[in-house]
Every structure is written in C-alpha cells, then in structure tokens.
Design a protein around this nucleic acid. Structure first.
Length: 425
RNA sequence: GUGGCCAUAGCUCAGUUGGUUAGAGUGCCAGGUUGUGGCCCUGGAGGUCGAGGGUUCAAAUCCCUCUGGCCACCCCA
C-alpha cells in the first residue's frame, strides 16, 4: 500500500510556517480589537440550509463547491464555505443585539470549498474577518473597510489596491437587472456558453466574464441605476474613506459572488497575485441576510481575508517573520552519570521561563553543540563529570564562543542575564 | 467542472536516440583518538524513478488509466 498523503487541496501547517501564521493572526486580532471588535468562534459545520438560504442557490459556492454530508441522525450538514452566515446566525441566536448595538466581532478559522486546487486556492483554506452587525450607517461601512486597510498596513504589505462599489438596494438591483438584460439579450448569440446561462440565472455575473470584455465595457453600469438614497449612501461612504486617508478606487463593475450583498461592496487586490487569485480579501454589506436565514431583518457589514494569500504576498515582500527557533538553551550532559543532574538543571531553567531542550543523548560533545546551534539556541549549558563533582555547570554562549563556569545555584541567573543581554544587543 | 505542463534520495535537480549494479549538490548519521560547534577531509545510510497496467529481448525513458502538484479557464479567499 502506498503511503497516505493529505487529501487533495489541503495542506499541513508545519513548524517552520507556524511563526508567520501566528504573527498574521495576532496582527489581525490586534487591528480588530483596536476598533472594539471581540473574538467569536462558530462551528466549522452548520445546517446546510444556512448556506443555501443565506449565501444563495444560484451561486457557484453553494451549487457546486460545498462539502455537504448527512450525519448519523440524518441531518444535512455542510462544512462552512465562508464565515459570515455562521457569525450572523450565532449573534442573532444568542440575542447579542439586546445588549449592545452594533455587535462587533472578529473571527479566524478554516473554510471549505470543493474547487480545483491551484496556488493560493485550496479546498480547506483559512480566513480572518470581522462583522459589524445591527446597524446601518455609512460610518460603519467606512469603519469596516478601514480596519481591513489598517490590517494590511500592519502586515507591511505594499501595493494593495482597494476597490469599492455600491450594489444598491433590492429595487436598484431589479432596475439594473432590467437594464443589463435589455443590453445583453440582443447580443445573446455573441456570448459564451457560460454567459448565456448567467443571462437567465444571475445577470449581474455577466460582468465577471473575461471572454466577452468588449461587450462588457459597453454594458450599463449599476451606478446609473442607483436610486437617490443609495447614491447618497455610497457618496457618504466614499467621502468617509477619503477623510480616513484610505485610498479607494471606484470600480462600477465590482460585483461579489455571494448573493446576500447590498449597497457597499469592496475588494482588496494585490498586483503580485496577478490574474488568477488576485483578491486578498473582500466584503460588503449584507442587509438581507438575516431575514434569509429566518431572523428579523438586521443590517450588517463585514470582510474576510484569505490567510494563505496574505502569507504568500507577505512572504514575497519579506514582511513575514522568520521561523522562531525551537529553544533558547540546550542543556548537554556528557555521560550517563550526568544525565540526572542535567535534567534537573533543565527543569529549573524551564521553571524560570527559559525555553530549554535537554540533550542527554550519547553523542559526542561536538555533535551536541552543532545540534544546539541548529536548533537556534543561543546558549548551551554543559554538565560533565567535573561540573557535577563541583556542583557547577558550564554556560556557553554559542554566538560569542565564550563560556564560564557557574555554581549550579547561579546558572539560572547567568542564563537569564546572558539572554537578556543578547536581546538588548 | 474543461484544457495544458509536470512527478527521479528528506530538499533542489541531472539522467544523452529505450541498453548492465540510477547519479550530483545539499541535508542526515558516523569517523578524523582524551569534554567544545557553524570550515575542511573520509566513510555510511537513504530511491520497487508518484501508483497500477501495457508495448519490448530490455522501460526512469514509449502508450493507457489513476493519484497528486502547477498554469489557463471558471470561481473566489
């Protein structure tokens, strides 16, 4: 039998990538919490209906990308393809709006979509995001977009382009739909197969097509179909972004793939992800979502970023931190007789908060030192026959290649002092 | 889901028109005599050449299927 590998489209987070992974999540939580967002965690699977009704049948995500299964009780469940529906469900189910309004929450976790894997595209991928639920005002749209913007800045990413658009309300979109149909119907025979299908199912998606670009360029734009209040709302959002110093580009052809969006929609693009997976993240207002999943109408807005893509770009730009070494100190015993005293010394160091690895192997000292060096340790504490006899230990600085013998009781102080000195330098 | 490229040691890759025991660099382990590392020298382990089938006297090399990766489409994070 051939060795089993990870399932297609999944990937393991190996120790070397953990540092950057944690860094990114820390930076996101910090940016969100700086704006008053609190952490929330929801199940990775939900009732299938939540996504069917929330995200919407007719979208690719629901129609052909969901991991749906039935459990032993015959319930139909689905591995979440996105985070918003679950977070909104949790907030409404727990009546959090009774205590404070709006509810601001941030989350991070795996999402699942059955799609053909590619670089920056996985079947299990990860998102960090925020949701601002319970109120509708342009200031909140600005706030959410700005948190995302600040987050990207804090990651040190250069070259991010922010695209914004307004999809208007239901009436606006109905009007726009008619305008689009009026434009595209006479051209139907010049459209690609997919687009002819979209024409019937979801005309807004015609704008996504890259094959019929020439037709698209002349197509009507939703901005022209916006009613007075929608247009004013959008203008307020754009004005707020400008005042915040967030450089946003109006892209009238930006439409998001999920059905529940209304009014403000936005995406953060990055040039180095050009073509294929150029979107680092995006979001928008979803005022219709709560009703779609059976709760009282509740406005909301949020965003989500793809962790793998952010890390891809941060890695290219060198802004992600290097892997953290395994430990600060390696304690080496030289023979079986010193194994116990060395182990005891390691315990004392750990109790003092020093990350310590014990090397009680029967390898030669030069190998142990080499290994300590590879582990990234800054110091090596050597416990040999002489040291045990004298109740002492040798503390060696691997960077400076100097060493000093200390009585056992003074080793912790010597080690912590040396580490602190190294950190300051 | 459609089309294309690819798959050789832990890693990065050679392998000539099918031809004997499949190589290099790096990494790993050990040695270069007593308890001192990142260099150097020597030796060793490690591959059913992604998996299965077929053509052939002979397959890493040619053909088919599958699996996986990448690219484009699609979709989006």
């Amino acid at each position: 039998m051939p060795p089993l590998g990870a399932p297609r489209g999944t990937h393991d987070l190996l120790p070397d990538t953990a540092t950057a992974w944690r860094w990114l999540h820390g930076v996101h939580a910090e940016a969100a919490e700086l704006h008053g967002y609190r952490p929330i965690d929801t199940p990775v699977f939900e009732q299938t209906e939540l996504f069917e009704r929330g995200v919407g049948t007719g979208t690719d995500v629901v129609d052909k990308e969901m991991y749906t299964f039935s459990d032993r009780g015959g319930r139909s469940l689905t591995l979440r393809p996105e985070g918003t529906a679950g977070v909104l469900r949790a907030v409404l189910q727990a009546n959090l709006l009774e205590e404070a309004r709006p509810v601001r929450a941030h989350y991070a976790g795996p999402m699942f979509r059955y799609d053909r894997p590619q670089k920056g595209r996985y079947r299990q991928f990860h998102q960090v995001g925020i949701e601002c639920i319970g109120e509708r005002s342009p200031e909140l749209d600005v706030e959410v977009i700005e948190v995302g913007w600040r987050f990207l800045q804090a990651l040190g990413l250069a070259g991010v382009v922010l695209q914004v658009n307004s999809l208007g309300d239901l009436d606006d979109r109905m009007r726009y739909r008619e305008a689009l149909l009026a434009y595209y119907r006479p051209l139907a025979d010049r459209l690609c197969d997919d687009c002819r299908r979209r024409l019937e199912i979801n005309p807004l998606r015609l704008l996504d097509c890259k094959r019929d670009e020439s037709l698209r360029d002349a197509a009507p734009v939703i901005t022209d179909s916006l009613g007075e209040s929608s247009a004013a709302y959008f203008a307020a959002v754009r004005g707020g972004l400008e005042a915040a110093g967030v450089a946003a580009e109006h892209n009238p052809r930006l439409v998001r793939g999920l059905d529940y969006y209304a009014h403000t929609a936005f995406e953060y693009w990055h040039s180095s992800l050009q073509g294929a997976q150029n979107s680092l993240g995006g979001g928008g207002r979803y005022d219709g979502l709560a009703e779609a999943i059976g709760f009282p109408a509740t406005p909301g807005i949020g965003y989500a970023f793809g962790v793998e893509r952010l890390l891809l770009v941060a890695g290219e730009q060198g802004s992600a931190p290097a892997p953290q070494p395994a430990c600060d100190v390696v304690v080496c015993s030289l023979g079986p007789a010193e194994a116990q005293p060395a182990a005891q010394l390691a315990r004392v160091l750990r109790a003092a908060g020093v990350r310590t690895v014990l090397d009680a192997s029967d390898r030669k000292l030069d190998r142990k030192l080499r290994n300590a060096d590879r582990l990234g340790a800054r110091l090596c504490v050597i416990v040999g026959e002489d040291e045990v006899r004298e109740g002492a230990a040798m503390v060696r600085d691997l960077g400076r290649r100097t060493q000093e013998r200390h009585p056992a009781a003074g080793v912790v102080d010597a080690v912590t002092a040396a580490l602190a000195a190294g950190r300051a330098a």
